[in-house]
């Protein structure tokens, strides 16, 4: 039933859009027709500009997000487990989170120049704090009982982290990763819009420069779809698996 409702909703939305276009209130460069956007999409994939844009953007986010997962979890573990880091680094992290990611752009440009690393730096700064904060919360919420049980069974040092603390904090870490992903995706687009070097954000800018509203909307649709796909195909599945395993929902 849900899916039917959703399909009807989207058909209506597209219908209204097409209707507004046909009424001719706005010129085509302000509101393009559905057909021209579809044509641009097909053409974009056909001559591979979109594919290249997607590939370049995905490569950047894969590296940046990957690095932020590693750094975020390590920082979260440090802050969650070591008092001195909590008292010092902890306050810095929560302070930094109030800073919009794009504010790192000038710094990134001066440090790395107009290149991929600037963009990936933005991606890392976008995602790493959410992951750090979530990991910290997860680590602090590991029940003492698990720690005691693990200790009597000989868990010590890094094994305690690997076999108990990280798995026990995993529901939190996944939530942080999910939030981090959406921040990373936004930062990536912001970076690509402002730094000219291939990628989906750059394609958006090209659309603007050519006054090609069809391309702008087509690329926006691609960006939304990728965001949804990653969320559905990865995070929703992982979250469901964890909930089932931990018995947080009735299966």
């Amino acid at each position: 039933m849900n899916i039917v409702k959703r399909i009807i909703f989207y058909i209506l939305l597209v219908g209204i859009w097409e209707l507004l276009y046909r009424l001719g209130i706005w010129p085509a460069y302000v509101l393009p027709s559905v057909v021209s956007v579809c044509k641009t999409l097909i053409h974009g994939f056909h001559d591979q500009t979109f594919l290249i844009g997607i590939a370049v953007s995905m490569k950047r986010i894969a590296i940046g997000y990957g690095i932020s997962i590693v750094i975020g979890i390590l920082l979260g573990l440090l802050i969650g487990r070591v008092r001195i880091f909590e008292e010092t680094l902890g306050s810095l992290i929560s302070g930094l989170q109030t800073l919009p990611t794009i504010c790192w752009l000038p710094l990134a440009l001066l440090w790395f120049g107009l290149n991929d690393w600037s963009i990936m730096f933005l991606v890392i700064m976008g995602a790493v704090l959410s992951i750090t904060i979530a990991t910290d919360a997860g680590v602090k919420n590991v029940p003492l009982l698990y720690m005691r049980a693990a200790k009597t069974m000989g868990a010590r040092g890094w094994k305690l982290y690997l076999e108990v603390i990280i798995p026990a904090a995993l529901p939190y870490i996944i939530t942080g990763m999910k939030q981090g992903w959406s921040f990373a995706w936004r930062s990536l687009m912001a970076g690509e819009l402002l730094i000219v070097c291939v990628g989906l954000g750059h394609l958006l800018m090209v659309g603007r420069e050519l006054n090609d509203m069809s391309q702008v909307i087509a690329v926006m649709i691609v960006i939304i779809i990728i965001g949804i796909l990653v969320d559905r195909l990865f995070f929703v599945k992982v979250e469901r698996r964890i909930r089932e395993r931990w018995g947080l929902v009735k299966t």
Binding site: L145, Y146, R148, A149, T152, M153, V164, P167, A168, L170, R245, W246, G247
Partner: peptide, 12 residues
């Protein structure tokens, strides 16, 4: 090895 009041099994 200790057996606690709550089983302390690991849910993961």
């Amino acid at each position: 090895v200790v057996i606690f009041q709550e089983a302390a099994l690991f849910p993961w």
